[in-house]
């Protein structure tokens, strides 16, 4: 990946409730915990964030989505690096957060990403059977699938979140996923959370995304 794609290289999420991990992390000067990841997210996708997803509808050109990818250090994150070394071109709209395992990606964290203005989020973990923590990727996938339902219920839309399996050696696949997700979010338009942006987008496009999900959860 390019420097631009990195949300932060210093953040490694570890279980905050594990004293051993916390102590080890502290020694190594590593930032731990959802709070810190959240701050990184904010920088990456927050409405005030500059680079990714610059709000084109504010008059700075066409709207670009803000997409956050929680990538497992052992696979997707390495694949991202590989994609960078291979000089592959892929979506400039996504930012990567390095996770110790895709299974560490808390549902609350993904929800928070949407609250902070993300238009799409995906979690990328190892191929099934290759998880360094045995089943972290399988758990992450199940949780993401469960989250889809909740996102439907709260009006964000379950299609804005996805789980992918990527091996560390699959640089091109990493690039393909980034593009695929960007494509999907571009079609969906700005997140329904961002009402103003969505309205402006709908007006500019004259089109398909004027309907929000405001009816969802009303009953």
């Amino acid at each position: 990946m390019t420097e631009e794609h990195k949300a932060s290289l210093t953040v490694v999420a570890m279980p905050t409730d594990c004293p051993t991990c916390a102590a080890e992390a502290e020694k190594a000067g590593i930032v731990v915990g959802n709070g810190e990841i959240a701050a990184t997210m904010e920088a990456a996708v927050g409405l005030e964030a500059g680079a990714a997803g610059a709000a084109g509808v504010d008059g700075q050109g066409p709207w670009r989505p803000k997409i956050l990818a929680f990538c497992c250090y052992f696979c997707a994150y390495s694949a991202a690096d590989l994609a960078g070394s291979m000089r592959l071109q892929y979506s400039p709209d996504m930012r990567v957060i390095e996770m110790p395992c895709s299974g560490k990606t808390d549902i609350a964290l993904i929800l928070e990403a949407f609250e902070k203005g993300a238009d799409g989020v995906y979690v990328a973990g190892c191929l099934e059977g290759d998880c360094h923590f045995l089943k972290g990727n399988i758990r992450a996938k199940k949780r993401v699938n469960g989250l889809k339902k909740l996102l439907d219920q709260v009006g964000v839309g379950g299609e804005r979140v996805e789980f992918f399996n990527v091996a560390g050696s699959q640089g091109p696949r990493f690039a393909q996923i980034a593009d695929e997700m960007t494509e999907r979010i571009l079609k969906l338009g700005p997140s329904p959370v961002k009402k103003a942006q969505r309205a402006a987008y709908a007006a500019a496009a004259g089109g398909p995304t004027a309907q929000t999900n405001s009816e969802v959860g009303a009953k």
Binding site: A108, L151, G155, E215, G217
Partner: peptide, 20 residues
Amino acid sequence: EKEVNTMASALRLLWATSGR
């Protein structure tokens, strides 16, 4: 605690998207 945070986020998102 985890479910409390998830619930808080979910409600905020619901209210943001629905305008309620």
